[in-house]
């Protein structure tokens, strides 16, 4: 059974069909890329998976259970962690506190136990702290833990987003254009890091505009163009696919 199943998902906005009857699956332990030119429907499909946009028709199943129609926070607690395309860190909170939000989100927290400082609440706080620290060490952000997120160097902020998503203990990590705004050296560093996460056993869906990162590290690539899935194959095959080349060349140079 695949971990994530996208089953004939369509999303219309008025007359525009942003995602058109897309199906696909990701197995446990895979590192899959989702690419496509601007306006191909990547972000819409992403938002359908994470619960930000309900599909017009079709279903998304995670670990065999239907997740379409669930609120984003419920989908997160089922085990899908995400990052945002344009960094959405919490600027006026410290790096540590930013990441702790992911752990709190996964473990849940209530006002009454917090007020009474029950044993359960104290154990939970220790658990949140430990998970937060672990995510910070995994992303090498521990030395910056006390800084306000707004004071973090730009390149590190990407890792903060990933650390926050890791703190939700995801079974599937969905990265939305993580290489946006990074130079070549930083992109290569990020590629190594994503590979390490994958090697540690995490299932990853990488949504990218830029082909080079995806082709370099993914085992399989799904290609969207004008809302339709036009290819779903290993990178070497996709790169030779005339339909894919046309879709890309029709709008811009492949990177």
């Amino acid at each position: 059974m695949p971990l994530l199943e996208i089953d004939h998902v369509t999303r219309r906005f008025g007359g525009l069909v942003a995602v058109d009857d897309v199906s696909g699956a990701i197995a446990e332990g895979e590192l899959v890329g989702l690419i496509g030119p601007n306006g191909a429907g990547k972000t819409t499909l992403f938002n359908v998976i994470c619960g930000f946009t309900p599909p017009s028709s079709g279903e998304v199943r995670f670990a065999g259970e239907l997740i379409t129609g669930l609120k984003p926070w419920r989908i997160c607690r089922r085990g899908i962690g995400r990052t945002f395309q344009n960094l959405r860190i919490f600027p006026n909170m410290t790096v540590f506190d930013n990441v702790s939000v992911g752990a709190v989100g996964r473990l849940g927290i209530g006002p009454v136990e917090t007020l009474l400082r029950t044993r359960a609440a104290r154990d939970r706080a220790r658990d949140v702290s430990a998970r937060t620290w672990q995510a910070l060490e995994r992303t090498e952000l521990a030395p910056y833990a006390h800084l306000l997120a707004a004071d973090l160097p730009y390149g590190r902020r990407k890792y903060l987003e990933i650390a926050r998503a890791l703190a939700t203990s995801p079974r599937l990590l969905v990265l939305d254009e993580p290489a946006a705004g990074l130079n070549d050296t930083e992109t290569a560093e990020l590629a190594r890091f994503i590979r390490t996460l994958h090697a540690e056993g995490l299932t990853i869906l990488l949504v990218e505009h830029d082909m080079s990162l995806v082709m370099g590290i993914c085992q399989r690539v799904m290609v969207l163009a004008s809302g339709r899935k036009i290819a779903d194959a290993p990178p070497a095959v996709v790169q030779q696919d005339p339909i894919v080349l046309e879709a890309y060349l029709g709008t811009e140079e492949p990177a």
Partner: peptide, 24 residues
């Protein structure tokens, strides 16, 4: 407390807090 951190996350970006598993 971490409950307070969840509240501050709502202040900073409630959509993002939602995606992190918080019932906004």
């Amino acid at each position: 407390s971490y409950y307070g951190n969840a509240l501050r996350a709502l202040r900073e970006d409630d959509q993002c807090a939602d995606a992190m598993g918080l019932p906004v």
